[in-house]
Design a binder for these strands. Structure first.
Length: 582
DNA sequence: GCCGTTTTCGGCCCGACTGTTTTCAGTCG
């Protein structure tokens, strides 16, 4: 029974959810869900750890959870989970996804009204039956109904690009209002993520400003009927269908509030435990000693320093080893925009791009890049105007001429070759041998099973002419899952063949996910941050990929396109020499 | 259920907001 870490984590999370529903000790549920998170992120296969008797090495795994995992690995099932789930009708956990419905209320509507689906809950609200329950009233019922309706009409999440544009727009409006001294994006939008359910914005009140006016102003930014709550320090609204939480604090709490509202929750929990162990209390207003006096924190550096840590970049605040690294002084110096030299994976009007090679090259140069990897589509991608072998040769001539014209800027000539169903590339070897590099991507037959997809990827990676593996998972965020594949086998192959792994920065893709990127980078597989641009605006998507690379703990040394042009040239030459065509 | 610069038992981060309540429970982040 092969189970990967995600499968095991999913079972433990369900145990946590159903334990809460069953009204068990809430700390028990927390124990299961924190181990679920740890397993999901764990670099080693839990199945291997179990085989070596090393499960207890995972923080939070004790006797009981070890047994649950062992049970799961042997039988593929969990007796504990089945017992818990047996007490409730199927699908009841959906009720928890309605904002305002937590375990207690789900339990109450289920036990007293027989409600077990969102549809039944909506009906019960309309029949005015919730008000009869203890602890429920008119307003609670109305709010639950509103939350159900919101859930029905809104897409649950937004892309990075959408969330950022809504957030930046709100920051600009709030700054302009004059109510605030500073307005700043916090939360997961500051930490970086591939999709967003809400955004957090920190607003520091201007001197002498009253909270009433500030609160009313922020509430006025809401969609019609979109105010979720508005108090003295917190205003929550829906803006363009996305939940936005504003937090207002005075200037003295700026640094603590920024740290607090940036999160993640798990990171903050660890940080506050740490503070507590040092006799300090930490909250969004400051850091306090036992006697109530506070430690002055002019900036986030001071906040971390107060608990004996160096400053941790927001992207790393996921409770995944950053605290230990900060304590040991081994935090990585993360890649920055200024470290990037090459723009890899650029399309032009030779295939489905909108601009000429020269225009795209000049746009790259304008953005401070010194080289570009031109990669139009290959012949099988006829829907995208893919190039046949003759056109590819013509394009090579144009690239040669442009390289003379634009020197010292350098265009490397390659192609984004479809990886065909059997894993082969889209041209005969002789054609590929004339190129500087080849990006291989899967664009067709996306519904393969795990075994078939893995075989297809492995066969492409084993081809020495493949330089870069493009958008490896095939996912489209909020739209398409991507095909399943054996991650460990693919990473092994990339490592063995010295193949570059692309991180595709298109906000619809952000592929592969930063968590996989981190595992790849940890093995020393070079990562290329690629815009997959079809026009100049597409080049600016690099900012999203850069954030993901930072979340993956990447230093410039890990990033392929941080190489200088001479190094990149030498790299491509060496790759080609390996199969004797330089 | 887990764990130990406070500990093998007693805690487990901390606060805002809302609504149903006269002092707090539930939910959320």
């Amino acid at each position: 029974m092969a189970l990967d870490n995600a499968d095991i984590a999913a079972v433990l999370s369900r145990i946590a959810v159903f334990s809460e529903l069953a009204g068990e000790n809430p700390f028990k549920a927390r124990a299961f869900s924190s181990v679920a998170r740890a397993i999901e992120k764990h670099p080693e296969r839990v199945e291997d750890l179990a085989a070596q008797g090393r499960l207890r090495e995972i923080h939070g795994v004790g006797k009981s959870i070890e047994e649950v995992v062992a049970d799961l690995l042997v039988t593929g099932r969990s007796g504990l989970l089945e017992d818990l789930m047996g007490r409730f009708p199927a699908g009841i956990q959906d009720l928890l996804s309605v904002s305002g419905m937590g375990p207690k209320r789900v339990k109450a509507v289920h036990e007293n009204l027989g409600v077990s689906t969102i549809g039944e809950l909506e009906y019960a609200c309309r029949e005015n039956r919730l008000v009869a329950l203890d602890g429920f009233g008119e307003k609670t019922q109305a709010n639950i109904l509103k939350a159900i309706e919101f859930r029905k009409r809104s897409q649950d999440s937004r892309l990075f690009s959408d969330a950022l544009s809504i957030g930046e727009d709100l920051v600009a409006l709030a700054v302009k209002s004059g109510h605030f001294r500073h307005v700043q994006i916090a939360g997961s939008l500051r930490r970086g993520k591939s999709s967003f359910k809400d955004i957090d914005i920190l607003a520091i009140l201007a001197p002498g400003t009253g909270t009433d006016g500030a609160r009313d102003f922020l509430a006025s930014l809401s969609d019609p009927d979109g105010i979720i709550g508005a108090g003295d320090t917190k205003v929550s609204i829906h803006r363009m269908g996305l939940q936005v939480d504003f937090r207002m604090v005075s200037a003295g709490s700026h640094a603590s509030a920024l740290q607090h509202f940036t999160g993640s929750r798990e990171h903050n929990t660890l940080l506050r435990s740490r503070a507590k162990a040092r006799g300090l209390k930490m909250n969004e207003y400051g850091i306090f000693r036992d006697d109530g006096t506070d430690i002055a924190c002019p900036d986030e550096e001071a906040v971390y320093r107060a608990v004996g840590l160096g400053w941790i970049p927001p992207e790393l605040r996921e409770a995944d080893g950053e605290m230990e690294a900060a304590e040991a002084g081994t935090l990585p110096v993360l890649v920055e925009a200024g470290d990037l030299r090459g723009m890899v994976h650029v399309h032009t009007d030779w295939s489905d791009g909108t601009r000429s090679v020269e225009e795209m090259a000049r746009e790259c140069r304008k953005r401070g890049f010194s080289w570009m990897c031109l990669s139009d589509h290959s012949r099988t991608a006829s829907y995208a105007g893919g190039l046949d072998a003759e056109r590819l040769v013509e394009q090579a001539e144009e690239v040669k001429a442009l390289n003379r014209k634009l020197s010292p800027f350098r265009i490397f000539h390659g192609v984004e070759s479809d990886i065909l169903a059997d894993g082969s590339l889209d041209y005969p070897d002789g054609v590929l041998d004339g190129l500087d590099f080849v990006i291989g991507s899967i664009h067709s037959k996306l519904t393969m099973g795990k075994e078939e997809a893995t075989k297809r990827l492995l066969s492409a990676i084993a081809n020495p002419r493949l330089t870069v593996l493009g958008h490896a998972s095939g996912r489209l965020l909020l739209a398409r899952e991507g095909y399943p594949f054996d991650e460990a086998a693919v990473l092994d192959a990339l490592e063995a063949h010295g193949t570059v792994l692309e991180h595709n920065c298109n906000p619809h893709r952000l592929d592969p996910d930063w968590s996989l990127l981190r595992r790849a980078a940890r093995r020393g597989i070079p990562i290329s941050i690629d815009p997959d641009a079809h026009d100049p605006e597409g080049l600016d998507d690099m900012r999203f990929g850069l954030t993901m690379a930072r979340k993956a703990w990447c230093t410039p040394e890990r990033i392929f396109n941080c190489m200088e042009v001479e190094e990149a040239d030498a790299y491509f030459r060496k790759r080609r020499e390996a199969f004797g065509t330089s």
